[in-house]
Design a protein around this nucleic acid. Structure first.
Lengths: 204, 204
DNA sequence: ACTTACGCTGAACAACTGTCCAGAATTTTA
DNA sequence: TAAAATTCTGGACAGTTGTTCAGCGTAAGT
């Protein structure tokens, strides 16, 4: 006997609706986490943000860590989708890298809180083994992104990791300056990356 | 009328003894912080570590943040003293840099928890403005250290910051790998820095 | 219409947090 | 030795934390 689709108003399976609900909660949770950071965010803060009772969170997620894990993977998917189009876009090789850098520079000003959350949780993973795997996965994806970019530009693959780390360090530093009130942080980031690029090009 | 020295068994002024006591407490606090991280460390944990009542902490420090601030400055002084001798040591120019890198590589294995604490608090500073100043000061000192090293080696001063950030990113990454159980992290760090150095050298 | 399952509520719980403070213990001063 | 100042204690306080659960209403299945 074949299982017919359930006769819901929306055409979603039960599992899908569950998943969609979890996504909603995660989105609200991420919103609070961006503001307060991991350690300072309580389940009640999150519950309030999505207009739901505390118990509801435990209905969908085993515990706080599971919720965090879910949020992280969702955040990762979102971020990679956001910058992924740079790889696919049709443009001269030099422009792709310039576009990435420009995008990152703008992110310092516009999505500062989101990225500060990433650094927060990445650091937390040094203390809570629970987050080790997710963080490692996300970071591996970032490196993979740079590797593909290097592939497009004909740059040596084995330097992708190095370049990622360089970019990460500068982004982190100027993000921190920006959050501390330095209005020139965005420009500082671009200038410093430019210096770095000239270093790479000279030995291209 | 001249104030005679107090007739304590030790020859310390009152202020000095107070300062020494604070140092003792801070040392014990740092020990716990290294294990648990900032957010997970309570005043009771710290009090237990130095065999003292909770109230005592508030007698010496206004609040938890003040204690943290004190700990940070003490940590900074210790760390810079530890690597400072590289600048003063008499050795061929190439060896000084190699010595620093070797020292850092060993730190991944030996002082992992101490450095993980530094990354923890540096990230916290993105959320608590209270720590902004201390963190910025320490980081400025680190850059200054690299700048002096570059001075000794005849390398361009304006690249000191860039080099610091590169070193920092690689150290952070491999520290995280090490903490996640990667036994090859120390070697990985050295290899990656070597790659970085060759990049720098080619444009001398 | 009746039953089952699902999604959610919000009060209650025990554990823990930073902070305060009256008073004890100790040390310094007179 | 007596008085004063310093250092420390440990219980109390009010607030927050993650987690649990009996019970509610609603939707699905029969």
């Amino acid at each position: 006997m074949t299982h017919a689709l359930p006769k819901h108003s929306d055409g979603l399976q039960k599992v899908d609706r569950r998943r969609a609900r979890k996504d909603d909660i995660a989105d609200a949770a991420i919103e609070v986490l961006k503001q307060l950071g991991y350690a300072q965010t309580s389940l009640r803060d999150i519950a309030a943000q999505c207009g739901v009772a505390v118990g509801t969170l435990h209905y969908h997620f085993a515990d706080k860590a599971a919720l965090m894990d879910f949020c992280l993977r969702r955040y990762k998917a979102g971020f990679l989708a956001e910058i992924g189009d740079i790889l696919d876009a049709e443009m001269p090789d030099g422009a792709a890298l310039a576009a990435l850098i420009e995008r990152l520079a703008q992110a310092i000003g516009r999505d500062a809180h989101a990225h500060r959350l990433w650094y927060d949780i990445r650091t937390q993973a040094m203390f809570e083994r629970r987050f080790e795997a997710v963080v490692a996965e996300i970071e591996a994806d970032m490196v993979e992104f740079v590797r593909r970019l290097f592939g497009r530009l004909g740059l040596p693959h084995e330097q992708a990791m190095t370049f990622y780390l360089q970019l990460d360090a500068m982004f982190r530093y100027h993000l921190q300056r920006h959050l501390a009130g330095d209005a020139a942080a965005t420009e500082g980031f671009k200038a410093q990356v430019a210096q770095l690029m000239s270093l790479h090009r000279r030995q291209g």
